[in-house]
């Protein structure tokens, strides 16, 4: 484990105004070390996705500070946020969000238009085990395969942090395990910091750190001294 790469300091996120005002994230503090595999756990409406969005530079806090790799993300303007997302973050979505009109290879190669030092798309596809699916379009692949392309796409930017929003949420358990294995592998063997948001408590068993959220607040931060291997996870 290394130095903190992510720091949330007294972060608040509110939506709406007046009587309709809702606090999605309520004075949240936590930090994440470089290379950790972190699971943010919580039920629907707990505020976990809001945390992930602020971390990913897609949303800004109402107050407080979000620091990532020494940069104050919460103070960035649109242009800087765009650069930040390009260089630091790899995002994996629940519904993959691949570009339907691009092949698997092209979806990954898309990163070349975003960053200058993108990794070789074919290497990334091979890494997720889809080297032989490079020419397929998303509609020609299963959900699990699409999610693996999505991971390859995230990896191709060589980001410091990979964010996953319910990355196994749309997959069956067998496929979900495979995707989870990849994410753990990225963290433990390639040194990427992987942060996954989920409501599935079983996934938390294989995480280095688990942040439990409820009603916008952190209920518990737990370091997992002995995470179980992914193949033993059941859900």
């Amino acid at each position: 484990m290394g130095n903190p790469i992510v720091e949330f300091k007294d972060v608040v996120k509110e939506y709406g105004q007046g009587e309709g005002k809702q606090t999605a994230v309520n004075h949240v503090d936590f930090s994440i070390e470089e290379g950790e595999f972190v699971v943010i756990l919580g039920q629907s409406g707990a505020g976990k996705s809001t945390v992930l969005n602020m971390l990913g530079g897609m949303d800004t806090p109402t107050s407080g500070m979000v620091m990532v790799d020494g940069l104050e993300v919460s103070a960035m303007n649109d242009k800087k946020l765009s650069d930040y997302r390009a260089e630091k973050i790899g995002f994996i979505f629940q519904f993959y969000n691949l570009i339907p009109s691009l092949t698997a290879y092209e979806n990954v190669a898309l990163t070349k238009s975003i960053v200058n030092d993108a990794l070789d798309p074919m290497d990334m596809l091979n890494r997720v085990g889809l080297g032989n699916h490079a020419k397929k379009f998303p509609s020609q692949m299963s959900g699990g395969e699409q999610q693996r392309v999505s991971i390859a796409r995230a990896l191709a930017k060589n980001p410091k942090i990979i964010l996953g929003d319910e990355p196994t949420g749309a997959l069956d358990s067998e496929t979900g395990v495979k995707v989870l294995e990849l994410l753990v592998d990225m963290s433990h063997n390639y040194g990427n910091t992987v942060i996954v948001v989920t409501h599935n408590a079983d996934i938390a068993k294989c995480a280095d750190k688990v942040i439990r959220m409820k009603n916008g607040k952190i209920r518990e931060i737990k370091l997992n001294d002995a995470p179980i291997p992914v193949e033993e996870v059941e859900w």
Binding site: S82, D83, R85, A86, N97, I99, L110, I114, K157
Partner: peptide, 11 residues
């Protein structure tokens, strides 16, 4: 798709 591209950092 555009939102995804934006999340990925495309300007």
């Amino acid at each position: 798709e555009f939102a995804t591209l934006k999340v990925m950092g495309l300007s």
